[in-house]
Design a protein around this nucleic acid. Structure first.
Lengths: 197, 197
DNA sequence: ACAGAATGACACGATCTAGTATCATTATCC
DNA sequence: GGATAATGATACTAGATCGTGTCATTCTGT
């Protein structure tokens, strides 16, 4: 008999092999949730252990100390946000005037999402303590989007900057909600017109 | 006989009236230095007390608890960074094609400085815990610069966004050093050309 | 079946931190 | 001069947190 998905305390003792495979994922799921909500300093290992329904010793066994958990959580968030950019290449090859617009709208919606904004904010906040994370974040994030745009326009960096723009700055400061698709499309059209694209 | 400016332990007992006037400034000077370097969570009151050559009780007497010290430090930083925008109005009235360029260069250099970047990073990092600081920061900072530009160009928000651009994002992540004046001027000229200004 | 590995529950030590209290010392007020 | 206020030095309380230790429990490998 298998235990209910969220049924009280986890059973004791050594886990089965299939449980072991899920274990690390569950820990990182909880870490991502908590770090996004409360930031690095606002999450204790006890709280993370409770959230992951695991003990601290198990966290050390599967991931490591707090800094390693944070690094792994950021890495997972990077992989979670960036696959949205994968269809870029496919879209880029699609001819027609709307290819650029479609890509831009995807980019705006993705990078203004709660997850992407939370990641961006965390990396900025901890750039002092985790400089390697900042380097990796920029290379895997903004730089990659800029490279994708470089196949389509002559000024990819400036286009990327404008696609984020002040709304993105305000999102980082927690001043606005994520834009609706309609707002994102309007923003994209405004930017493309401004740059004569 | 007056004590040397930075000569060992401060003398005990009730301070003179002139000392009282300086006291709060010295505390906030130290707070600004430490918060910029180590962030809100990275500064303890003991450390702040040592840096300000004062005891914790005196900090409570002059400023308040840690959150009030942080709020006061951010307010002081806002006042410290923004006076650079005061000459905006005077420059704006100066006719000639170089008025906009001169203002833009000032803006780029100021907002990429270590102090401005440190403030921006701190406000982003603590936007969850101090949402009022984020609101005040955007209104007194970016919004104010955008308003100043609105007298000179038809697309002030977009111009502001481009004047910061990816170099500013990279500065927030600790990836670049502050731009030289030459780099700032080159960046401004590139942006103004792109927008046909 | 049995030894060993991995876990949850619980506890513990060491460290750090916010905020307060005590006491001697120095300035201000009357 | 004497009372009062404000300070530095120091210690303290109370709580949080990181990282380990102990022990019973459960799975894996042989």
């Amino acid at each position: 008999m298998t235990r209910a998905v969220d049924g009280g305390p986890r059973k004791r003792g050594r886990p089965t092999e299939s449980e072991r495979e899920q274990r690390r994922e569950e820990i990182l799921d909880a870490a991502v949730r908590l770090f996004l909500r409360h930031g690095y300093g606002g999450v204790s290992l006890d709280r993370l252990a409770t959230e992951a329904k695991v003990t601290k010793r198990t966290i050390y066994g599967y991931v490591g100390d707090k800094t390693e958990v944070f690094t792994a959580a950021v890495a997972r968030l990077n992989r979670e946000v960036l696959p949205e950019a994968e269809p870029v290449d496919r879209q880029a090859r699609t001819p027609g005037a709307n290819a650029l617009e479609a890509l831009a709208v995807r980019l705006v919606i993705t990078l203004h999402s709660d997850v992407a904004i939370g990641l961006h904010r965390m990396v900025v906040a901890e750039a002092h303590q985790f400089p390697d994370l900042a380097t990796g974040f920029y290379a895997a994030g903004p730089q990659r989007y800029i490279d994708a745009l470089s196949d389509l326009v002559p000024c990819p960096e400036e286009l990327f900057t404008l696609l984020l723009g002040e709304p993105h700055r305000r999102r980082l400061l927690g001043l606005d909600a994520p834009p609706s698709r309609a707002r994102a499309e309007a923003h994209v059209n405004g930017v493309l017109q401004l740059l004569d694209l």
